[in-house]
Simulated assay, not measured.
Amino acid sequence: MSIDSLDSGPGDSGSGEWPIARDVDARDLRCPLPLLRAKQALRDLASGEALRVRATDVGSVRDFQSFAELSGHRLLHQSEEAGVYTHILVKS
């Protein structure tokens, strides 16, 4: 998956909107802390709920891609703006 890819949300006709159930601010945290914070937050979500994580560690892009592949959670979106990487995961 490349950065800036976006799938449509439930009932969405392509706008890419997905309701965020939880937001994690992992800016200024180094690997592996952004991913660890995301894992902790995912435990509290129900299946199908979305988690948004904001991080400044460039390695988080690869980390979240690998995590989604291995865990079965859906990596819905990744983007970068002004050095902040946004990842949206949907719990499986």
Rank of each mutant, 00 (worst) to 15 (best):
E49T: 12
V61D: 04
D7I: 04
Q40E: 13
L36I: 13
L51R: 03
L75T: 10
K91S: 04
V61S: 01
L70Q: 13
A21Y: 15
Q65R: 15
A41T: 13
L36A: 01
A26Y: 14
A82S: 10
V24G: 01
K39F: 09
R52S: 04
S47R: 14
H87Q: 06
D23W: 13
S66I: 06
R37A: 09
R37T: 06
L89T: 06
A38T: 12
H87K: 01
A41H: 08
L29M: 03
D23I: 15
P10R: 05
S47H: 12
G83Y: 02
D4N: 14
G48A: 07
R74Y: 08
R43N: 10
A82I: 05
Q40C: 01
W18G: 01
T56Y: 09
D28K: 03
A41Q: 06
P34M: 09
A21F: 14
H87R: 00
T86Y: 00
D4Y: 06
G48H: 06
A46D: 09
G72L: 04
P19R: 14
A55S: 15
S47G: 05
A26Q: 05
V58W: 03
V24S: 03
S66V: 06
S79T: 15
R37H: 10
D12P: 03
L35V: 08
A26F: 15
L29P: 01
K91G: 03
F64Q: 11
G59Y: 07
E81R: 12
R22N: 06
V24Q: 01
H87W: 05
D25A: 07
K39S: 03
A55V: 15
M1V: 05
L75W: 08
F67H: 11
T56N: 00
I20A: 01
E80I: 08
S2L: 02
Q40N: 08
L33G: 00
L51W: 01
E69R: 12
G16N: 04
L89Y: 13
V61W: 02
V90C: 02
V24E: 07
V84I: 14
D7L: 00
S71K: 14
R52Y: 02
L45R: 05
E49S: 10
D23H: 12
R52M: 12
K91R: 15
E80R: 05
